[in-house]
Amino acid sequence: MKSEPKEHTREDVEAAAYRFLARRDHACGELRQKLGRYDFEEALVEEVLSELVDRGYLDDERFAETQGQALARKGWGPAQIAHRLRQRGVDSVHIDAVLDLVEAETSWTVRASEYLRGKFGAPGQLDERTQRRAFRHMVYRGYAPGVVRRLLFDA
């Protein structure tokens, strides 16, 4: 005989949320999405998320800043950073703020130039095939095509 599905309590939702947060920081939308995979009542999920925000365990601004800076250090450009943060449910206000913050430290052009040199070598010494490959790679990494074009072909 089949048993009735278990009625989830607020404590169940909290426990699941804390398990996710124990592994790493999450954006509010990302945690909402993960908790949504369970059979939790939506009102309970929202109540727990609100409490986690109030306690400071969930902070989209902090999440965007740490994740955005980490991605920038790994050589990702602004378009790819914005895309990855959007996928995790971060608001565009926080995304724009972190992109401005990263650019204030070092401009995207300088970051692109440093990444390009580290990955492919000096732009002026690349053959045509490598320039095309570098262009595709840099655009995929999230750098603006115009910036990459100037770095590669005006060097």
Rank of each mutant, 00 (worst) to 15 (best):
D96Y: 12
A27Q: 04
R32Y: 10
G121L: 09
G56K: 09
V53C: 05
A104D: 13
F135K: 00
G68N: 01
F63R: 01
I95Q: 00
E14I: 13
L85W: 00
P145D: 15
G29L: 02
E103D: 15
H26E: 00
A97W: 05
V102K: 06
A97F: 05
V148I: 12
L35R: 13
R133V: 07
E11F: 07
D127K: 01
G124D: 12
Q87T: 10
R73C: 10
E128H: 04
G77Q: 03
Q69R: 11
V147I: 13
G118L: 12
F120C: 05
S113A: 12
A144M: 15
R84K: 15
A43K: 15
H8M: 06
G36Y: 10
G146E: 15
S3F: 15
L58V: 08
A134C: 03
G146L: 15
V139E: 01
E114H: 12
R73Y: 06
E105Q: 14
W108H: 05
A15D: 14
R62W: 04
F120P: 00
Y57G: 06
T106F: 14
F20N: 07
D154E: 10
A22D: 14
Q33N: 11
A97Y: 04
A97L: 08
L151I: 06
G68P: 01
L71I: 04
Q131C: 07
G89I: 01
A64K: 01
D12M: 10
K6W: 06
V148H: 05
L126N: 05
T130S: 05
R149V: 10
L58P: 03
R10G: 05
W76G: 01
W76Y: 06
F135P: 02
E41D: 14
G68S: 03
H26A: 03
R136N: 09
D96N: 13
Q69G: 11
E61Y: 09
P123K: 03
T9H: 08
S3P: 11
K2C: 00
R24P: 09
R10C: 03
R55Q: 15
M138Y: 01
A79R: 04
R149C: 14
A17W: 02
Y57T: 08
S50G: 15
F20T: 04
R55V: 11
H8S: 06
A155H: 11
F153M: 08
C28H: 03
V148L: 10
I95Y: 01
V98W: 01
R19W: 05
A112L: 07
E42Y: 13
Q80L: 11
G142F: 04
A27R: 03
E7C: 05
P5Q: 06
F63L: 02
L101S: 14
I95C: 01
L49I: 00
